[in-house]
């Protein structure tokens, strides 16, 4: 078998937190891969485990007490330089973080140190990972800010984080993350704290940079609209499990999993005032409790296609439906594929 080159291969990743009331299963047997240069989106509501996956990939959960983590994470699988991230020591991980995989977070203000200038922080990040002079690191930082179309980059570098706006801060974070040319960027809700017009700017820049640098991106978000703007492939998460995988266009055109269908129908569409009697369809109930998942399919208590003695008994597997398409539902082939568009 010819091994396909993958940027990231995650196999059977599970994360559970131990609590007094029992284990809280944040991530359950998640398997996926990212090809070089591909943008994969992880979509889910709060509590679906999407951020935990991001942190687990960076091995940032190691210090969390009462945590159990299992599974395999391979970087550049299929190549001679392949790495199993789960086997790396903390020291080795430090080399990988920033150099190979970089991460940006939701709230740029809390990711930047308020008492240092932007310059100090970006230069420090570059010097930590690369063996170059301070002077070169400064030039590098300047170049990165220019790449992110920050107006007046010299001035921005001499500012403190509180002196620049939220959109600029997020650009600085992206600049810092990309300054060592990682091959994989994990972006955890990078635009959620920003206004729509600023979000449009950031997404536009990320798309351009991704093409230019050819990196892979794991884009974590709850916003399905944003996914269709940026991603090539989508993984839909529910209750810590992957419930549907597919190429963006195909998945949004005809979602198979009832959860994806319901989620797409629950968002008001732009232009809905033109449609007579248009009504968003709410999903009843709420997100499941990660310490007590229902039997059978995790989504069955909220699903309108639930059949008794099937959905509440047997736990569906992630079935491969067609090329690049997987779905976790016992009844995907028999329920109507009422699409959203």
């Amino acid at each position: 078998m010819v091994a396909k080159n993958l940027m990231l291969k995650v196999e059977d990743l599970s994360v559970s937190f131990k609590a007094r009331s029992g284990p809280i299963q944040a991530v359950r047997n998640v398997t996926f891969s990212i090809k070089p240069g591909e943008v994969v989106a992880l979509v889910g509501e709060s509590g679906s485990g999407k951020s935990t996956i991001g942190l687990a990939l960076m091995r940032l959960l190691d210090d969390v007490k009462k945590l159990e983590i299992s599974g395999k994470i391979f970087l550049r699988s299929g190549e001679s330089s392949a790495l199993d991230l789960m086997d790396r020591s903390e020291r080795e991980m430090r080399e990988i973080r920033g150099n190979e995989i970089a991460m940006i977070f939701q709230e740029p203000m809390s990711s930047l140190n308020p008492i240092f200038t932007i310059k100090t922080q970006i230069v420090e990040a570059i010097l930590t990972h690369q063996n170059i002079s301070r002077r070169d690191a400064y030039c590098r930082a300047l170049e990165m800010l220019k790449l992110l179309s920050i107006p007046d980059p010299e001035k921005c570098l001499s500012n403190y984080p509180h002196q620049i706006s939220g959109g600029m801060r997020q650009r600085v974070m992206i600049a810092m993350a990309l300054s060592c040319e990682p091959c994989l960027l994990i972006a955890d809700e990078p635009t959620t704290a920003l206004d729509v017009t600023i979000q449009a700017q950031i997404v536009d820049i990320m798309k351009k940079l991704q093409k230019r640098l050819g990196m892979s991106i794991l884009f974590i978000t709850h916003d399905l609209g944003l996914v269709s703007e940026i991603a090539d492939r989508v993984l839909v998460l529910y209750g810590g499990q992957v419930v549907e995988v597919g190429d963006v266009k195909a998945l949004f055109a005809s979602p198979f999993m009832p959860y994806t269908q319901a989620l797409l129908k629950s968002i008001p569409k732009l232009g809905c005032s033109e449609l007579p009697n248009y009504r968003v369809e709410a999903i009843p109930g709420s997100v499941p409790d990660a310490s007590a998942f229902p039997n059978g399919c995790t989504f069955h208590p909220r699903c309108r296609h639930t059949v008794r003695n099937i959905c509440d008994v047997s736990e569906p597997i992630l079935e491969t439906v067609s090329n690049n398409r997987q779905v976790r539902c016992c009844r995907w082939f028999e329920i109507e594929k009422d699409c959203v568009s």
Binding site: A200, S228, I267
Partner: peptide
């Protein structure tokens, strides 16, 4: 600037 899940009707974005 509103991102839309329905990508067929993609409009021209004004940034």
């Amino acid at each position: 600037a509103v991102p839309m899940a329905n990508s067929d009707k993609r409009r021209e974005r004004i940034i």
